[in-house]
Amino acid sequence: MREYLKETLLELCCSYTIISVVGAITNFFYGSETSNANVIAMFIFCAIAVFVLSLHKLLTRFSPLLMILIQFVLSLGLCCLVVFIISLIEPVSPRGWFEFIRSFVIVYILGAGYYYYRVFKDAKKQDKLIKEIQEKNKQ
């Protein structure tokens, strides 16, 4: 448990740093500013993403595709809950929900696509290694 917490916190720190630096660079070039509420929301979303992705070890009995779908539904649900809670304090713009879901889905699909590609690429590489070992063992 301690090891899990240590690993998860480390991942959270790294991912939040990357996101805030990218956000800061984007703001610098577009001349926009981020509010305190946005910074906190960004951190919460980051924490949700790291937590949900860290659950993959518990989902090994499911196929990766099902795991991706479970994680998608869980993380989307948690993020929607956070946005809903924030909306009680600060109003969400009319297109806020649409923009939020669109941003979430695009990033998730890109991530899942990359994972899918890696699974196939790694399997191909392993298959090549096996053939090579079998060939050398025959000689």
């Binding site: 090994t60 595709l65 991706i68 699974v119 399997a123 392993q126 298959d127 096996i130 070992i133 079998q134």
Partner: peptide
Amino acid sequence: IYKIKQLKPDLNMKVYASFDNGERICINRS
């Protein structure tokens, strides 16, 4: 591994090792 005919992922991303006898075993991602 010397008996593996092919290593191939399914559409659901589970990777299977197929043997000469037609059977296949799933390679757990852990």
